[in-house]
Amino acid sequence: MSQIDGGRIKFGSGSDGVSYMDQDKQVLGRFQRMFGLRWKRNLTEAFIKYGLFLCAILSIFTTAGIIAVLLFEAIQFFQEVSIFEFLGSTKWTPLFSSKHFGIWPLVTGTLLTSIGAMLVALPLGLLSAIYLSEYAPRRVRATLKPILEVLAGIPTVVYGYFALLFVTPILRSISDNIMVFNGLSAAIVMGIMILPMVSSLSEDAMQAVPRSLREGAYALGATQLEVATKIVVPAALSGIVAAFILSMSRAIGETMIVAIAAGQNPNFTFNPFVPIETMTAYIVQVSMGDTPTGTIEFKTIFTVGLSLFVMTLIMNLLSQYFVKRFREVYE
């Protein structure tokens, strides 16, 4: 526990004329005080240690709580709906009178918007990261990074507003085929939202590439482009892959943009121009309505939540695996 053990007791020599009896008493008193103090100290220390331990262990309770809650309700759901219906049907209509429980329309909706978002965020984010890491003068970098971080700090409901009331009208003025609610607008804005994440994580990975690798390439006559794309990016690749996976997982779990701009129609389609519904938007839709607790409609949000949790968990673990691999090489 404590690395330092109180203090040590020095025995008086009796040279100051105090009788041995008194001295014994004094020593005893001292000893008691010391012992009492140390006992109290140890108790406090132990108390604090276990208090802090409880704080740390709370994170495990949280994860356990999430899994328990989702599983508990999802198991009840699967007692009423067969898993073959859930994974086999392509119709999702739990809120209608003729109920179908095929998850696929929500999955395609989620994949459509998140892959679309990645198509925006991946090239833009990677190029921004290369610029910030390899080209930008220090001062430019010091101003640009915080500005990009502002983009990351904007609440998602604001992006939802932007998608529905700014981007969608522009898209609709380009093509009449685009509906008021559509996957495209949500995907583009979601791409802008995760761009800072892709860019900042990829840039971190590129910054960790040793300078000597770059200088070796320059010494061989490589141009700046060649150093950036043939040396730095490959060397930072697992860090960049980790950034992509993490951003994709973020996009899958993103809620407000798609709930506002993509619609509430679980269509089994990859058409970006029509209204769709993502897993997250469905959960919001049920929560906003007055679905009574305990009904099968209510249990669907736990089942959908479980699917969402599993998808993002796998991607997060994958991303951590890549980060670890990256660290093993350069640290």
């Binding site: 973020r250 779990g253 809620t255 919001v284 929560s287 949790f309 968990l313 951590q320």
Partner: peptide
């Protein structure tokens, strides 16, 4: 615990609502 915390940071916020 560390891995668990990193994963919790990546759990979609809507799951915390549930």
């Amino acid at each position: 615990i560390q891995l668990n915390i990193a994963n919790l940071a990546g759990v979609p916020s809507i799951v915390y609502g549930i």
